[in-house]
Every structure is written in structure tokens, then in C-alpha cells.
């Protein structure tokens, strides 16, 4: 449960950097239902209000699971109000949800009064840009596959899954077997 007194104290102590992170997180979360409305059957003020409210609660308690509800509600809204659209709106929604997730994760690492150092912020920004580029690449791939109406292949899907799993396990295992330090 979110204690209103905690939320008030939290908001009062927030640093300027924290305010900007919180504002950006709420702004990108707000863009999701708006973009969904533009891609689908129109705007839904109720969904917009719910998402904004949940986003606001998420930035005041970023280490809680409230922030998980925002992308799930947004996903449900996207699935329910749009057809299988691979247009640019899907990319915008994906990037907005990703930005929201990243900002809330960054906020969860520090108390509200903290100011995160510039080098760390720059590092998170660089990584986020890399992920955004990868998302763009995935979008292009999906668009190409969708436009060419390629037939699905169970064999290729299974092979791709096995390959991805093998690659991931291969990358994780050497790290796990490293010698522990004192």
C-alpha cells in the first residue's frame, strides 16, 4: 500500500534532477495511451488518466511494483484498440515504455534527494540509445517480414529459440564460473 504521508515526504525532498527524471517519466508514459489512440480507434481519457496516475505513483515510489502496472495497462490498451499494426506508432510506444522503465529503474537506485553523477547518467543514456537502436532494428525486421508476407516456419522458430538460448547461456556461464573474491 502507498502511504500518502510517505508520498508527501518523498515529493518534498526531491532534488531538481529527480524532478526532471520524474517529469520525463510521467511525460513518456502519457505519450503511450495518446500514441495508442492515434494508431487505433481514438483517444481514451479514462485510460490516459489511469496511466498518468499510475506513472505518478511509480515515480514517487520507483522501487515498488506499481511501475509494472503501467506497461501492462499500456499493452492491454494497445492490444485492444489497435489491429496488428507494425507502423511507426508501435515503435513510438515501445520506446516510450522503455524510456519509462529505464527512468523509473534509475530513480529506484537512489533516494529522492539524491543527484546522480553525470558520468553515470551519460552511461545510462548511451546504453539506452543502444537499446533504442536495437529496437529500431527489430521494428525494421518486423516491418520487412510483415510486408513480404513471409510464411511462418515452426522449424525456423524453434531453431531461432534454441540459438538465442544457447548464446545467452554461453555468455552467462563463463562469468558465473569466475573465481570469487574475498
Amino acid at each position: 500500500m502507498i502511504d500518502p504521508a510517505d508520498v508527501t515526504a518523498h515529493v518534498r525532498r526531491m532534488s531538481p534532477q529527480r524532478w526532471s527524471l520524474a517529469f520525463t517519466a510521467v511525460a513518456v508514459a502519457t505519450l503511450v495511451p495518446i500514441t495508442t489512440g492515434m494508431a487505433g480507434s481514438g483517444q481514451s481519457p479514462v485510460i490516459l488518466a489511469i496511466v498518468v496516475g499510475l506513472a505518478g505513483a511509480s515515480v514517487t515510489q520507483p522501487d515498488s511494483h506499481v511501475a509494472l502496472i503501467v506497461p501492462l495497462v499500456a499493452l492491454w490498451h494497445w492490444t485492444a484498440s489497435t489491429e496488428a499494426s507494425t507502423g511507426p506508432w508501435a515503435l513510438v510506444v515501445a520506446l516510450c515504455l522503455f524510456a519509462f522503465h529505464t527512468l523509473v529503474a534509475l530513480m529506484a537506485t537512489t533516494p529522492p534527494r539524491a543527484t546522480i553523477d553525470r558520468r553515470s547518467c551519460a552511461r545510462w543514456l548511451r546504453r539506452s540509445l543502444a537499446v533504442a537502436l536495437a529496437t529500431g532494428a527489430v521494428w525494421l525486421l518486423v516491418v520487412v517480414v510483415d510486408q513480404r508476407h513471409l510464411a511462418g516456419s515452426a522449424l525456423l522458430t524453434a531453431a531461432g529459440f534454441v540459438l538465442a538460448t544457447t548464446l545467452m547461456v554461453a555468455m552467462i556461464n563463463p562469468r558465473r564460473s569466475g573465481p570469487p573474491t574475498a
Binding site: 492490444t79 508501435a90 515501445a94 522503465h101 537499446v131 529496437t135 521494428w139
Partner: peptide, 19 residues
Amino acid sequence: PDLLIVAAPFAVVTAWSMI
């Protein structure tokens, strides 16, 4: 397939986090 686009950045983040 549009939902794969939405899941893509989170899949990258999850993989990166686990690695």
C-alpha cells in the same frame, strides 16, 4: 508482430541484465 516490437527493448534489457 507489433507486440514483438513493444517487447524488443525489454528483451534486450533482460538479456543484458542476466548476462
